[in-house]
């Protein structure tokens, strides 16, 4: 990566979660640029702009109005332009179905939103420091769900 910061995008309809997310990165003091979108439509609108700066890591909430996370995931995976984006599913749910489905479609990691701020910071710092190429080659269903 020849940029001086890591470009991160979060698509989440929940205002509180966007707040936690941006606050966590502020406190982490990692050189990041965080963009947030309120739903899938806004996200895809941004990504589909050919001029857009593509993120290094995309955090995708599943349950969003208008266009949900699964639909976005499909569109991203079907477009070769987005091949280099690491996709982290970022959801309240940890149901087997959701984990299975997003794994099959091709997400890189599954994060269950933690219920305390310290854990959130820990998870986010870990995710942004993952070597995605290495992680993706050894990816299987068991290490897909991030455990701390």
């Amino acid at each position: 990566m020849n940029k001086e910061y890591i470009h991160i995008i979060l698509a989440d309809d929940d205002e509180d979660d966007r707040l936690f997310f941006t606050d966590a990165f502020k406190e982490l003091k990692i050189s990041t640029k965080v963009n947030t979108f309120n739903d899938g439509v806004e996200l895809m609108h941004y990504l589909n702009d050919p001029e857009a700066v593509l993120p290094n890591v995309l955090f995708l909430d599943l349950n969003m109005p208008k266009k949900n996370g699964i639909e976005c995931l499909h569109e991203i995976k079907n477009n070769a332009r987005f091949d280099n984006i690491a996709i982290a599913i970022y959801s309240t749910s940890s149901s087997e179905e959701d984990i299975e489905e997003t794994f099959v479609i091709g997400a890189n990691i599954y994060i269950k939103k933690p219920s305390d701020f310290a854990s959130l910071k820990k998870i986010l710092s870990e995710v942004v420091s993952i070597n995605w190429q290495y992680h993706t080659s050894g990816l299987n269903k068991d290490n897909f769900l991030l455990r701390l």
């Binding site: 509180d16 933690p114 219920s115």
Partner: peptide
Amino acid sequence: QEPLRKIQTFIS
């Protein structure tokens, strides 16, 4: 879970 999780996060 979602509101509970947020309550817990705010509490933390």
